[in-house]
């Protein structure tokens, strides 16, 4: 920003503030108004987006915090993969968390379609099966990771302990890893939800009041996966 006057420590003090001429006064007020004007512009844009994009009142610089239950914290995203075994939940990978957060803050159809598209381009696998494979690799006598015989007690305690069936959701195979053991996925479905609080009910048996927290679907998108992601590939199957 250009300074109309030389900076404060290089010029003399003005004799008396009351002697300020009207032009200088106008200049002072214009400079003082810049920051509040920016606030008004951003707040106007925020209000527009709340109305048109369903953006939460909490985020976006409109100062609508603490005014509604429908914040980005109560909104949530669910993603499912359609596989030959049925519909399985997806654990959205960390590198797509920002995209998911943007969807929660302003759940437009374009954003949910985009997230579904990105999830559809990923290869998915079962985390419990991966843990079993890692455990097998550890215990394989031929493996360089295998424990020495004299360190048997120590190595057993360090083996991963997978619990088959605990993990219901699929995990993304990192982009830098080959898509080994990827599940065949035909389509991805993404849902964006919010929550509503409904109060006033009482328990029929003991009369204890309770309040219901109810999920309410805002948006949904389904995207079919590209052909190469639908075929199950395994390390053994590859030449």
């Amino acid at each position: 920003m250009s300074a109309r006057h030389p900076t404060s420590d290089t010029r003399p003090e003005a004799p008396d503030p009351s002697d300020t001429d009207p032009e200088d006064r106008q200049f002072l007020l214009r400079r003082a108004a810049i920051a509040p004007l920016c606030l008004c512009l951003v707040a106007g844009l925020h209000a527009f987006r709340v109305v048109t994009c369903g953006q939460t009142q909490w985020k976006g610089g409109g100062f609508g915090m603490f005014s509604t239950v429908d914040s980005e914290a109560t909104r949530f995203v669910r993603a499912f993969a359609q596989t030959p075994e049925g519909e399985l939940p997806l654990d959205i990978p960390k590198y797509l968390e920002k995209t998911a957060a943007e969807l929660k803050a302003a759940p437009t159809q374009a954003k949910i379609d985009a997230l579904a598209g990105r999830l559809a381009s990923i290869h998915w696998r079962r985390p419990d099966e991966r843990l079993v494979r890692e455990a097998q690799r550890w215990s394989d006598a031929e493996s360089p990771f295998a424990p020495r015989k004299d360190a048997h007690a120590l190595s057993e305690s360090h083996l991963p302990q997978p619990t088959i069936g605990l993990y219901r959701s699929l995990e993304a195979i990192p982009p830098d890893q080959p898509p080994e053991h990827a599940l065949g996925v035909s389509a991805i479905r993404v849902e964006c939800w919010t929550m509503r609080l409904e109060s006033g009910a009482r328990n029929a048996t003991d009369g204890v009041p309770y309040t219901t927290l109810r999920g309410e679907k805002l948006r949904e998108a389904t995207v079919e996966t590209p052909v190469e992601a639908t075929v199950e590939t395994t390390a053994e199957a590859q030449p």
């Binding site: 920003m1 250009s2 300074a3 404060s8 503030p17 400079r31 003082a32």
Partner: peptide
Amino acid sequence: CAFTLHRHE
């Protein structure tokens, strides 16, 4: 913005 003005302003 304030620091672009005269010191007394």
